[in-house]
Amino acid sequence: MSCIQTRGLAYGQISYRDLDIEEGKATFISGPSGCGKSTLLRLFNKTLAPTAGTVLYRGQDMAQTDSIALRREVLLAGQSVFLFEGTVGENFDAFCEARESANLAAEDKQKFLRLCCANFPLDAPCVHLSGGERQRVFLAICLSFLPKVLMLDEPTSALDQETAERFMAQVLAFCRERAMTVVAVSHDPALTGRHAENIISLRAEAE
């Protein structure tokens, strides 16, 4: 069954062939830079409006659905990592507050941190974390919202190969267990080859 489908989708200069994202599977999107991978994810969570065509989520035209509810179900962990000032634990709460959802218990926060290879104490201040560590904390927070569709834009860009591998394996196993759909953009063909259940390769299409 299709989770997300596109029909005649275009954004600015970029036009996409019709795509189908399979429900409950890990789909990886690859392609040269500038071919519209990140833009595609933003069209999927409706933070961008397509210039032509439609995106369907579970058969329904996204243009007709409530954007905020949709973004909470089809969650995008974007390429640019953001964390609030304060500790790792406080960041979980701050993001929950922004989404107006209930705070997590400390053990749950730690569970998601471990899952994302970010086993830091909850009272560790985020300013002392490195770029890769911040990225993992951010991804742990995104994962903790348990969206129906988790979209990851270059989730391992700041990680070394070993950590990237472990991170991907753990997160995908967790998502498979919960029948979550994963859409990931990755530049790393080896990582894609090992973990993808479906691969969509986009070309830099000249119209």
């Binding site: 933070t47 905020i68 973004r71 969650l75 640019s80 990592v81 953001f82 922004a98």
Partner: peptide, 11 residues
Amino acid sequence: ARVEALLNIGA
């Protein structure tokens, strides 16, 4: 980055 991250998680 802050604006994008928070919009993306559904704020």
